[in-house]
Amino acid sequence: MSHDSDSDSDSDSDSDSDSDSDSKSSRPSRRNPFAAKKRITLAFKGPPLALPGAGQKHPSEPPPASPPRRSGEPVDTPHDGWSRERVARGSGVHRPVTKSRFPPPPDTDASGPKGAGGALDLVNRRQPSESAIDLSSEMTDRFALDDFTGALLAAELILGRQPDHPEAARYAALCRVRLDHLYSARLGGTGAVPRLNLPASEVRWLGLDHRAGFLLSLIDGEHSIDELLDIAAMPRLAVLKTLIELLDAGTIESA
């Protein structure tokens, strides 16, 4: 199944928190290390699954107004560009944007017989209503506000539903170009040669994932960013973004 790393980590963190809350009372067996090893985390693109009755929320209830913030994403403080724009337009309605609000609608026909109480049935009831957000306007608005990451995300979600959507394809391409420019400029150009900025023995104490670890292993002070892009076997923007993160963390320097 194809899914991005963010949705991976979201679903994992959800399942971890479930595990923590349940461990004391309802599922003592989870303390068993063998049981923990056998646990399977399902990669799932959509809202988290919940036990029947958990949280006592109505299925159609919208998600919380303040989703967990992620660095680099717009937040609902009045001083960010997104809120200012909303205020300026007089809508006054804040619609926080998180990835979990853009799940593709599950195929309701595939959920088995009605009332069977299957997992997909629960997903349907938890699904935010279609009218909660207009992806097209989200995409164009974010693009207008130079939030190319958000606009690209919205465009990709539209393309996930409608692969031939011309407007989304155009915006996605534009966003990629703009992000490419921004990231490249941050790195001092793709001709720059990044170098490790700390002893190799200290690398393991950094909070990296295996992709960043792989990219870091390619940095030898000889290959330019252009060359890294050729050999990294990762999407171009993902490489540039990871390099910026490494640069910001002081792990590498670019010359």
């Binding site: 690398v203 393991r204 670890g213 792989f214």
Partner: peptide, 9 residues
């Protein structure tokens, strides 16, 4: 370091 991520990320 960071050779792979486990199933628990």
């Amino acid at each position: 370091p960071f050779i792979i991520s486990s199933t628990r990320n």
